[in-house]
């Protein structure tokens, strides 16, 4: 099959753009101090589903591992609404790589809401782990799992799974 010079040039341009977008250098160029994520969370203990947006801030220099994580969620299930607010640390590794694993830990204020009673709240501690898979440029697919433990006024455990999108702000 023969192609015109224009077509070949267009294909080559697209391939080059994709290669640049997927390259570690391009990824590093997108890694500013902040990134936002919008994963959808499913809680395995106490069934609720909903978005858990998160903001990551890297206080150190580009390429450093440590990030501060702030996340708020609004999840709903058959018995109640669940509104967690988390503050923690997340370590992201393999900067510039297409697949970036991460781990983290932090504190979480968990609020369980029904309409006919005062809300129940408790302070918990979470761990998290997962991977960010770079799709193109600053866009990532994020996969996370996060167990948590509460030992305060309402003893209990939790297990969350999340899948969603994360975007590095320049």
């Amino acid at each position: 099959m023969r192609t015109s010079p224009c077509s070949r040039a267009a294909v080559m341009s697209l391939l080059a753009a994709a290669a640049i977008a997927l390259s570690p250098r391009a990824a590093l160029a997108h890694e500013g101090a902040f990134s936002v994520g919008v994963p959808i969370e499913i809680d395995v203990v106490g069934f609720v589903v909903g978005p858990r947006p998160e903001l990551l801030w890297r206080p150190g220099s580009a390429g450093s591992v440590s990030h501060v994580r702030v996340a708020l969620g609004a999840l709903f299930g058959p018995e109640y609404g669940y509104f967690p607010a988390a503050l923690g640390w997340r370590g992201r590794f393999r900067h510039g790589a297409r697949v970036q694993p991460f781990v983290g830990a932090g504190a979480e204020l968990q609020t369980f809401v029904v309409l006919d009673a005062p809300p129940y709240w408790r302070l918990g501690w979470y761990l998290e782990g997962g991977v960010d898979v770079r799709l193109i440029g600053a866009h990532h697919l994020t996969l996370q799992v996060a167990p948590d433990l509460s030992v305060g006024n309402h003893l209990g455990v939790g297990l969350s799974t999340r899948i969603g999108w994360r975007f590095d702000l320049d």
Binding site: D43, V45, G46, E79, Y80, Y82, F112, V114, D116, A117, Y120, R122, S150, H154, L155, G156, V157, G158
Partner: peptide, 11 residues
């Protein structure tokens, strides 16, 4: 009365 069962997160 509404009761929160905290271990399994049931209401």
């Amino acid at each position: 009365l509404v009761v929160f069962e905290s271990v399994l997160r049931r209401m």
